[in-house]
Nucleic acid binder design. Structure first.
Lengths: 345, 345
DNA sequence: TTGTAGGCGTTATCAG
DNA sequence: CTGATAACGCCTACAA
């Protein structure tokens, strides 16, 4: 019934617990034969060390955690895979943790630091409008990956790796304008968002302004909190409702590819064609966009680089206490089949 | 530097540790005012109990774990969400754990049981060709959700909730045959799969046989282990290669929607139309299929029911030691826009 | 209602 | 190279 402990193994092998511990943890000071014996007994008796006890005692677990907000977002999946590899290479162990939309990721981080003796944290997704005070409680280095925090948080207390959301959004909007679009519906984050949603919205507005197009507030549509954030469903429902209003528009620029796909389907369901009647553009450049019909024009984030550099930056901060960096990568405008010059007439 | 412990809190409040413990854990025997005081100090000093220490001591954590294989599979995301709710309702805590494609999920489970004092486990995804011996090491009840294990494992040692993969696959194949298709390419699991892949393949073959169509081995294509299992990319690359062979076919039936979507894109890229030239059907009935263009015809698994029943079954097994059930739900054939009658001529 | 002390399974320290 | 033994932070009898 009860499971076997290190003491049992020690007793069975006729050695002390510390010797068993040494065998488990690959300590150098141990006789090869005793080690062999111990390892064999462990195998036959199927002993598994209790990790809680280990973490309790261990000063350093050489572990870092990735906190992901938005379990369904395929954009993150890829990033996580790359990060996993990098972390393994550094001989660290990874704690991957999903946090629900409404849950406070910093609370979770605080908890995890205690529990797992983390050396550092990567935050993936979320809005990150936390107070400085709260962030300072995080005693280990952390990096915001693909999250542009607004200026409310002093940049000396954290690292970040991302694209310039303002600029890339500007780029995409300008691209659409240059195709002749002047009535561009923008699907943005929830009302009151102060993170990437806000930055991309600003980029959208500035681009219009620079192109001499007046910003029409009615064309700016927020995600509906009834549905999952950044999801296809959200994009679909929003767009469907928007179409019912009869407001004129010739293009959609959504702040995620999933939203863009939802929008596309809604437009098609309403009897229009993409891109013939309406052009649609997204953001992120996820694989799905390449498999969708039509291929979604998107602002591709360099996932690979961002992932690698996030880990790199974190390790630098770990080794070099208090060294915080903010790295910005260039996005790439991927022309798909979902955008074209505005229809004449 | 060092983080605050229960002793510190006790000292600060001028009480004993057990009192603090009682305050934290909502024990009844405690003075309201002292409790208030303690809770406040905890807040201001930002004390967080060390979970490792807790789990070490606790006999029972009222926790169950979900082990998911295939982080990118959106089919699972939805299921997890529902399960989370159910588990919360039962006042259990949930440990959600992803396991890599090559990793042995039972090993992970064994580890987790020790570490977290689990009461039960849900397995989601994977192939499950483990030995009976290994499975017996799992001392807590477990249920295979949407995994039909083959008969190699005695049914008395586990529970399962899923559709009848053979039957549903038969249903879809028959549907395609009735549309007049006789040359149906089948995208199946890796060579040697003995789990749902095998069952669905059997269903496909039996249906053809019953319809008087000879099974053509050349039309059966396995996933390529170069790419992620069940992914769009896998479907795309496989189909692309298949098309190059010039083998004649008028329909594709893939064992997942993601594979089907990849196949669709490959077919379109080759200059054919779906469903005009080739019909495509998938399996699972994920949301994405509804947003794709064309909407993917699929065999929809009743995610909601399966998720709820999985949890239900697990709790019954927990409360009722050794009571194992095998529940089967009916799938639904969702006609999309990706299939139609075979082209005449 | 409260405090003291012992132990959960490991690892680290230090003396053999 | 090896084995006692003292922590790690918390919970829970048991005593007060």
């Amino acid at each position: 019934m009860e499971s076997i402990t290190i003491k049992d193994v020690a007793r069975i092998c006729g050695v002390g617990v510390s010797t068993v511990s040494r065998a488990i943890n690959n300590h150098p000071d141990i006789n090869v034969d005793t080690k062999k014996l111990i390892l064999e007994t462990i195998k036959t008796y199927n002993y598994i060390p209790n990790d809680s006890a280990r973490n309790l005692k261990r000063v350093d677990a050489r572990a870092i955690a990735i906190l992901v907000k938005g379990i369904t977002n395929p954009f993150f999946s890829k990033m996580i895979k790359i990060m996993e590899k990098e972390i393994q290479q550094k001989k660290y162990s990874l704690i991957l943790h999903h946090v629900e939309d409404e849950v406070d990721e910093v609370e979770v981080a605080l908890q995890l630091i205690k529990e797992k003796r983390l050396r550092g944290i990567i935050f993936l997704g979320g809005y990150f409008s936390h107070t400085e005070k709260k962030l300072r409680q995080l005693r280990v280095p952390f990096v915001l990956s693909t999250i542009s925090a607004t200026d409310l948080i002093p940049r000396e207390i954290y690292s970040s790796v991302c694209v310039d959301d303002f600029k890339e959004s500007y780029k995409m909007t300008k691209y659409l304008c240059e195709l002749g679009h002047t009535k561009i519906m923008h699907i943005t984050a929830h009302e009151g968002d102060k993170s990437i949603g806000r930055l991309r919205l600003n980029g959208y507005m500035k681009a219009l302004e620079d192109m001499g197009i007046e910003v029409d507030q009615e064309l700016i549509v927020h995600m509906d909190s009834m549905y999952e954030a950044y999801s296809m469903e959200n994009g679909y429902e929003i767009t469907k409702k928007f179409l019912q209003k009869g407001k004129e528009f010739t293009a959609v620029f959504a702040i995620s590819d999933q939203l863009a796909i939802g929008a596309t389907r809604a437009i098609i369901d309403a009897g229009y064609q993409v891109p013939k009647d309406v052009s649609v553009a997204g953001f992120d450049g996820i694989d799905l966009g390449r498999y969708y019909c039509p291929r979604i024009t998107s602002l591709k984030q360099p996932v690979d680089q961002i992932a690698k550099e996030s880990i790199q930056t974190l390790f630098e901060a770990i080794e070099n206490k208090n060294k915080h960096e903010h790295k910005i990568f260039e996005g790439e405008l991927l022309e798909g089949e979902s955008t074209r010059e505005v229809k004449k007439g």
